[in-house]
């Protein structure tokens, strides 16, 4: 069996690396994205300040705190104190207000906007209610490039995984390559395994090259374990390749496959927090984003690179990605038709 898998794998690899135009594109595109977004597009929110609020019930009303009535401040409801405090440390929010029992607020002593937001808070409370207890944290701002890079790597993996298998298999079906292979002892499982392995190798090598390139030209943080990061991307790539296989299981035209792949890719791209944080978006968007493997891949990669998480800390996300991947792969194998 492995001899047959290897034969198909080698043929697919040759096809890939001899296609110079495609190969170049696979490597150049993520670089363009990183540079473009890191240096040109720096998203500034419309509101002047961003304040995170920890509440017991999750609703933000002026009755809970006079500060919440302040205009031109974005209030974001969060539920986990630990990650909320980390956001203050990294200047991702200007202030954190804890309205649960024993009200407190956190401010970063290194943040200019934090200083101003604190003045506003004090003014809002003046004479109206007892001021929450002051807590301070310190820390340099998390730069956009640090935050966006794990997502850009994941996004590149997504495009390469979805189109790399989806498009190719549909083309094989349309031009008769699949029919020819069907007439040999090769089984569908062997054929699909070869496609998955080939694409996985391509995706991971491209990611390593992009990572090294980014390391050379950009200054970004990597605080966690390389092994953990690698495994996150492997599990994520498996999920997305399997998703591509499902799309390719029956379709006969590249145009339709392209449409379906776009239909999958763009919502994932917009709702997985690759470019902007999902904090403060509508609850519906947050629920949808939980369905996407890309979300979990991006979150886990950020936790490794920015928070310095090790393998054991991201194990739940890894397990989730691996489980999703397996489910998608089995579905793809069951749906697959040669003709």
């Amino acid at each position: 069996m492995w001899r047959r898998v290897l034969a198909i794998l080698r043929a697919r690899n040759r096809e890939f690396y001899r296609d110079k135009a495609g190969l170049g594109w696979n490597i150049i595109m993520p670089f363009l994205m990183v540079f473009g977004f890191a240096f040109i597009f720096r998203a500034e929110p419309d509101d002047l300040f961003k304040v995170a609020v920890l509440t017991g019930r999750g609703e933000l009303s002026a009755e809970a705190s006079p500060f919440l009535a302040t205009r031109h401040v974005t209030f974001v409801s969060l539920s986990e104190p630990e990650s909320a405090i980390r956001k203050v440390e990294r200047h991702q929010v200007d202030l954190l207000l804890d309205l649960r029992a024993g009200a407190k607020y956190w401010v970063n002593v290194h943040s200019a906007k934090g200083y101003l937001a604190e003045r506003l808070l004090r003014a809002a409370y003046a004479g109206a209610a007892p001021l929450p207890a002051r807590q301070t944290v310190s820390g340099e701002a998390l730069r956009y490039v640090d935050w966006v890079l794990p997502g850009v790597l994941a996004m590149n993996i997504m495009f390469s995984s979805l189109w790399g298998v989806g498009w190719v298999i549909v083309r094989y079906r349309k031009n008769g390559v699949l029919r020819r292979l069907q007439a040999t002892p090769l089984s569908a499982f062997e054929f699909l395994s070869a496609q998955v392995l080939s694409r996985l190798a391509v995706v991971l090598s491209a990611s390593v090259i992009v990572y090294l390139g980014a390391d050379l030209f950009l200054d970004f943080v990597m605080r966690g374990s390389y092994l953990a990061l690698f495994l996150v991307y492997v599990a994520g790539a498996l999920c997305l390749i399997s998703m591509g296989l499902i799309v390719a299981a029956r379709l006969r035209t590249e145009e339709l496959a392209d449409g379906v792949l776009n239909l999958l890719a763009w919502p994932m791209l917009l709702l997985s927090g690759v470019w902007f944080s999902m904090d403060g978006t509508s609850p519906a968007a947050q629920v949808i984003s939980e369905i996407f493997p890309l979300t979990h891949m991006v979150n886990a990669a950020r936790r490794v690179m920015i928070d310095g998480s090790g393998l054991s800390e991201i194990l739940p996300e890894l397990a989730l990605l691996a489980g999703m991947g397996l489910l998608l792969l089995v579905t793809a194998a069951r749906l697959f038709r040669w003709d």
Partner: peptide
């Protein structure tokens, strides 16, 4: 077969 494509770049 009457019409068969082979994998590209081989």
């Amino acid at each position: 077969f009457q019409s068969t494509a082979l994998q590209d770049f081989q």
